[in-house]
């Protein structure tokens, strides 16, 4: 068991745990998106993020304050993605290794407009027809998916898939317009 001296490593700065917690909280969402882009499924991405969080937490003393928390956490999350993929290799359809590494490489340094895109999404949701907004809200309620929504509404699954695709397309185009207006 380690002793508990005030500054065991003699590291130059005392580490402020509040700083760590702040970074930790702030980047949850971005890490989620980082993982999602490599596995494609939000529920899997949550599970991986959960595992990564445990590791981030355990290794928090290895983080150098003042360096890039997000990049550091991404490496941990990337490792968890690998572990997850290995575990599921046999029983789940998944992206190829080549694809995942290409996406991961690009993802880490392309997160700059995330916040703006998110704000744009909020605006665009407001512009949807109310029936469309309700549908997308139902679809993304926890534990739901296109199939369960179709079941609940008694609509043919096929038409629900089509509506969801159409609404997502509209949102994507709206976000791109908002972004173009803001950033030129």
């Amino acid at each position: 068991m380690a002793e508990s001296p005030a500054n065991p490593n003699g590291s130059p700065q005392p580490r402020d745990p509040r700083e760590f917690v702040r970074d930790f909280t702030r980047y949850q969402r971005r890490l989620f998106l980082y993982v999602l882009s490599q596995v494609g499924n939000p529920v899997d991405a949550e599970e991986i993020l959960q595992e990564a969080n445990v590791v981030v937490w355990r290794k928090c003393d290895q983080f150098e304050p003042g360096t890039n928390f997000y990049a550091w956490a991404c490496r941990i999350a990337g490792f968890e993605v690998m572990k997850f993929r290995e575990k599921r290799r046999r029983d789940k359809l998944q992206f190829s290794d080549e694809f995942v590494s290409a996406i991961a490489a690009e993802e880490e340094d392309s997160a700059e407009h995330d916040e703006a895109r998110r704000a744009a999404l909020a605006a665009c949701l407001g512009k949807l027809k109310s029936s469309d907004r309700e549908l997308i809200q139902q679809r993304y309620a926890p534990g739901e998916n296109g199939l369960s929504v179709a079941d609940a509404l008694g609509r043919p699954i096929n038409s629900v898939y089509q509506s969801l695709g159409r609404i997502r397309k509209a949102l994507l185009e709206c976000i791109n317009r908002e972004m173009a207006a803001e950033f030129g």
């Binding site: 939000p42 993802e107 895109r117 998110r118 999404l121 809200q137 309620a141 997502r168 994507l172």
Partner: peptide, 17 residues
């Protein structure tokens, strides 16, 4: 395009959940 689409999907999932 892929990134933006998944970001949309993920954001809707994350924020709603």
């Amino acid at each position: 395009y892929y990134r933006n689409y998944l970001q949309l999907h993920g954001s809707l999932h994350w924020d709603a959940a």
